[in-house]
Amino acid sequence: MRFALLSALVVAFGAAIAGPANAAGKPIPADVHNVCGPAAPGTVRCFAQLRTDVHGGAGPRARTALPQGYGPADLRSAYRLPDAGGDGRTVAIVDAGDNPNAEADLAVYRATYGLPPCTTGNGCFRKVNQAGEASPLPTDLGWGSEIALDLDMVSAVCSACHILLVEADSPSVADMAAAVDTAAALGATVISNSYGASESNGMQAYAASYRHPGIAVVASSGDSGYGIPNVPAAYDNVLAVGGTTLTAANTERGWAEAAWAYAGSGCSAWVDKPAWQQDANCPGRMVADVAAVADPRTGVAVYHTYDAPGWVVAGGTSASAPLIAGIIALAGDPARFSDASYLYSHASGLNDVTDGSNSTPVMDCGGDYQCTAVTGYDGPTGVGTPNGLAAFE
């Protein structure tokens, strides 16, 4: 069978590549900037992207002149989310290096959109190093925009959630895994990871750090299109979050979604297929499981002043992962998501995305579900995007 052969070739290709760079990648548009460059061996890269043609300036905005990019009201409308919920639950964000302005910038974002304050003083916000201590914090590693994006997306969909920012000493695979363990130890109910590197031999040594029973662990699928899947998204106990292009539409929903052309998807050469995945043409773990807005061309508003001009429009699956993490916390039972099985059994509560493809010049699945949005499961968007909380409660 053609597609079965294709899947086998993908697995073999993945097994032959030991480095972190995704060989299936394709050039990004000229008006989009990758926050993080390619991952060096033994490290991960963040998946945040910024529009370079949108500069919104600094400071709070009046409600009559909100920044460009989707804000909380847009995201709640697109995914039919309630305005309230998530009280007392903690979403942990794991990133590399420090953003010294993280709390102050978060305050501007939340004030601009009328969200309640989330500060160290009121107990809503906490920032620690990878050992769980308030100091010393790591140096700036160029992930400042990534950190701001993560914090703003959790806030956008779960304004009552507490936020724990764990800053790893470096983007090494070992340090990031240690930071995830710290997030779990400090009481996070959901842990969001907007980074990764192409799977390779030896990666299973860190799988246990992303497996914490009773805690939902989500990870971005990546932003290089179809090819070798990224870890930690490919670990079978992690909820792998793909990406869509989200646009307003004259439909009953009021929105339309298609698979984002750069959303990561792929068939694992190293992780066995979990029992809850039934797709036919990938013998291993298939990425992704679920999806949300990621295209920076239809991106989200983010506020970041440390090494950016203030208001920016951002995207990448670095946007979709913390958004899904916030929705899991909002729904109220993160323990259901120790893996993705609950979502697969409740797919009727999701929007099924059936348009778009993430094929690349190097890797083209020939129209198969692994790189093409189809009815039911597909690689770029998984089992769908949130449609209220029905699939998460």
Rank of each mutant, 00 (worst) to 15 (best):
A177W: 10
P138I: 12
N281F: 05
A261R: 09
F3L: 04
I28T: 10
A102M: 07
G25P: 00
H304E: 15
T64K: 04
L343M: 14
P296E: 10
Y210V: 06
V94R: 05
S7C: 07
L50M: 10
S220M: 01
A23E: 01
L137F: 04
N230S: 12
G227P: 04
P171D: 08
R253W: 00
H33V: 12
E199N: 03
S145H: 09
P380H: 11
L343V: 15
A184W: 12
M286T: 05
S200L: 01
S265G: 08
D355E: 13
R285E: 02
G214W: 05
S145L: 14
W255N: 03
Y262A: 09
G266W: 01
P171M: 01
D236L: 04
N230W: 09
G376D: 08
N99I: 02
R80T: 10
A92C: 07
G367E: 14
F13E: 07
A15I: 01
G132C: 06
G388K: 11
V217Y: 05
A340G: 15
T139V: 14
S198W: 00
A373S: 14
Y377W: 15
Q277S: 03
P229D: 07
S159F: 03
E252S: 02
E257Y: 02
T120Y: 07
R2T: 03
N34E: 10
A325H: 11
N22G: 03
P334S: 07
A331H: 14
Q68H: 13
S221Y: 02
S159R: 14
L164I: 05
P213Q: 12
D95Y: 01
G123R: 11
V94G: 11
Y70I: 10
P322Q: 08
G88L: 06
V217K: 06
Y206Q: 05
E103M: 09
Y342E: 13
V180T: 09
N129T: 11
G132S: 08
C124G: 00
Y344T: 14
P274S: 00
T381Q: 12
A216W: 06
P296Q: 08
T247G: 12
G88Y: 10
